[in-house]
Simulated assay, not measured.
Amino acid sequence: MADEEWEEGGDAATEAFEQVRVAVEQQRGELALIRVIEGRLKLTCLDPASEVILTPDRPGLVLPEQPHFVEPLGAMRMQVDFYDQRPSL
């Protein structure tokens, strides 16, 4: 399991987030659990098509090889955990 934390704010963070905003696909077999620490984040999955607003009380699970992208809804902080088996939410 690897952890990454993103915070939208300064120029470097905004530039990095623009790169994440494009469609993302994790490695074969990996599940991604997106946890919002502060604020809100829109998670859009392309196949099957769905859209959900993630909050600190509502994490999002992305299945292996599921194309998706995220979009911050204002100031926010998030963490992404990667798993090789389904985590408990």
Rank of each mutant, 00 (worst) to 15 (best):
A2G: 05
D3I: 11
E4R: 14
E5R: 09
W6N: 02
E7T: 10
E8N: 12
G10I: 08
D11I: 02
D11F: 06
D11L: 10
A12W: 12
T14R: 11
T14K: 11
T14A: 10
A16G: 06
A16D: 11
Q19A: 13
V20G: 00
V20P: 07
V20Q: 01
V20I: 09
R21K: 15
R21F: 01
V22R: 11
R28M: 07
E30Y: 10
L31T: 04
A32C: 08
A32W: 00
V36M: 06
V36K: 01
G39M: 07
G39W: 11
R40V: 06
L41Y: 00
L41F: 04
T44D: 09
T44V: 12
C45W: 09
C45G: 01
C45T: 15
P48G: 09
A49R: 02
S50D: 09
S50W: 07
L54I: 06
P56N: 00
P56E: 14
D57E: 13
D57Q: 14
R58T: 02
R58V: 07
G60V: 01
G60H: 07
V62T: 08
V62G: 11
L63G: 05
P64H: 00
E65T: 13
E65K: 03
P67C: 01
P67I: 02
P67Q: 01
H68N: 08
H68W: 08
F69Q: 08
V70I: 12
V70F: 03
V70W: 00
E71C: 15
L73F: 05
L73G: 03
A75K: 05
A75Q: 07
M76A: 02
M76E: 08
R77T: 01
R77G: 01
R77E: 03
M78A: 15
M78L: 09
M78T: 13
M78E: 10
Q79F: 04
V80M: 05
Q85I: 05
Q85P: 04
P87W: 05
